[in-house]
Amino acid sequence: MAKNTQKIVYTTSLDSELAKKFKVYCALKGKYQNEVLEELINELLEKEGDGVGNNG
């Protein structure tokens, strides 16, 4: 993902235990939760395609 891109607020709900584990994981890795989520979403879209008429 390109640096200095515009950010939006994105709200969702998660299983409470999953959210706790994710928070701890991010803290141990020294990363922000949004940073890890963006990395994982980008990996998913690269692997599965972005869903807007092409495969990546």
Rank of each mutant, 00 (worst) to 15 (best):
M1E: 15
M1L: 12
N4Y: 07
T5N: 05
Q6K: 15
Q6W: 10
Q6H: 09
K7G: 00
K7A: 01
I8G: 01
I8Y: 12
V9L: 09
V9Y: 12
Y10P: 01
Y10C: 02
T11S: 12
T11Y: 03
L14D: 01
L14T: 03
E17L: 06
L18G: 02
A19Q: 04
A19H: 09
K21E: 15
K21P: 01
F22R: 02
V24W: 04
V24H: 01
Y25Q: 04
C26Q: 03
C26P: 08
C26N: 03
A27V: 02
K29E: 15
K29L: 10
G30A: 12
G30M: 10
K31A: 12
K31I: 14
Y32D: 14
Y32R: 13
Q33H: 01
Q33G: 02
N34H: 13
E35H: 13
E35D: 14
V36W: 05
V36H: 08
E39Y: 11
L40I: 04
L40W: 06
I41N: 09
I41M: 10
N42I: 08
E43D: 12
L44S: 04
L44E: 05
L45G: 07
E46P: 00
E46K: 10
K47M: 12
K47V: 08
K47H: 14
E48D: 09
E48H: 06
E48A: 08
G49E: 06
G49L: 06
G49D: 07
D50K: 03
D50L: 02
G51R: 14
G51E: 08
G51M: 04
G53E: 10
N54C: 07
N54K: 08
N54S: 15
N55F: 10
N55S: 11
G56M: 00
G56S: 07
